[in-house]
Design a protein around this nucleic acid. Structure first.
Lengths: 164, 164
DNA sequence: GAAGATTGAATATTCAATCTTA
DNA sequence: TAAGATTGAATATTCAATCTTC
């Protein structure tokens, strides 16, 4: 048996795993980059004695909605978390005075999460810290044009991902 | 007070929140796309009676490492989770027979998570399902060239994010 | 003392079951 | 019966403290 053959045998175990793919590599990069930035944002918020990142995401999402309020189901979908999880997350923000529940008059099944004055104020305080950290993460390597291109690419991927 | 003025007042509350930025928009798209794909992958794995996504990520990461084993600390860093969290995650995979702990002879503080035959087999089974789902998410809208470009862009962002 | 990993308490998230209203 | 939201049990994750080895 030649040296070459021996090397092949010793590597045999590793060859059972299917080969990587360009799309798989893109996904790995996406998930690692996402996790790395999330970690940085959490450290930033924690260091400034701000609430955790999910609170910011809730406040920022509700703030963008008309009337600064959103149906629970829509909010859960926007944040891509379960309905039950959102109920408890909103519970905490309500307890902290950052959101309030508003009940729909015409359909009493639905309830809204609505931004309070305190919630709006806190978001206004947090947003600059978050944006500054994102600038550090993105600006160093991405022009505004590149950032827009990235957003467009990701949006198109998500469009297909959600359509299924 | 004119109708116009009244409309302005009623909208006043919304103007306190700082403006959005291109990099902030890119981040929002990144995090939403990530969450959407994670959700799809989890549904795919669950429907096929496979273990959850974090298990796959552990197996796939360890499988790429030399000797199919990684130090706990390095693995935690690669997956961007806490050391304590990784210990318990690996505990579960060990209990399931997919990984085994290997202790370093020269430095008895370090331990490795090593792929077992069963772990390698399961990864080989899961990978096609994951890749197929990623193809659905990515291929519909991204050429291979675009996928590579996306990966490169994200890698450069992460490079700066980790350097900080 | 510092590095590497683990453990226990506290917190957060999911899944399935439940409740209310349309 | 179905839609919308909530609750409780089970699971997973973090944070801080601990243990072992360098």
């Amino acid at each position: 048996m030649s040296k070459q053959a021996i090397a092949t045998v010793s590597r045999e175990r590793r060859t059972k795993v299917p080969a990587r793919s360009p799309h798989g590599d893109a996904w790995e990069s996406l998930t690692r980059t996402h996790a790395a930035i999330v970690q940085r944002l959490q450290e930033t918020l924690s260091a400034a004695d701000f609430p955790p990142l999910p609170w910011y995401e809730v406040l920022a999402t509700v703030a963008e909605a008309p009337e600064e309020q959103m149906r629970m189901g829509d909010l859960a979908e926007a944040l891509v978390i379960t309905r039950g999880g959102l109920t408890k997350l909103v519970d905490r923000l309500v307890k902290a005075g950052l959101l309030e529940r508003v009940f729909c008059a015409t359909d009493r099944r639905v309830s809204y999460a609505a931004l309070t004055d305190a919630g709006r104020d806190l978001l206004a305080e947090m947003r600059p810290a978050v944006i500054a950290e994102l600038e550090v993460a993105f600006s160093a390597n991405l022009s505004v044009a590149q950032a827009n291109e990235l957003r467009q690419t990701l949006d198109s991927v998500r469009g297909s991902a959600c359509a299924g």
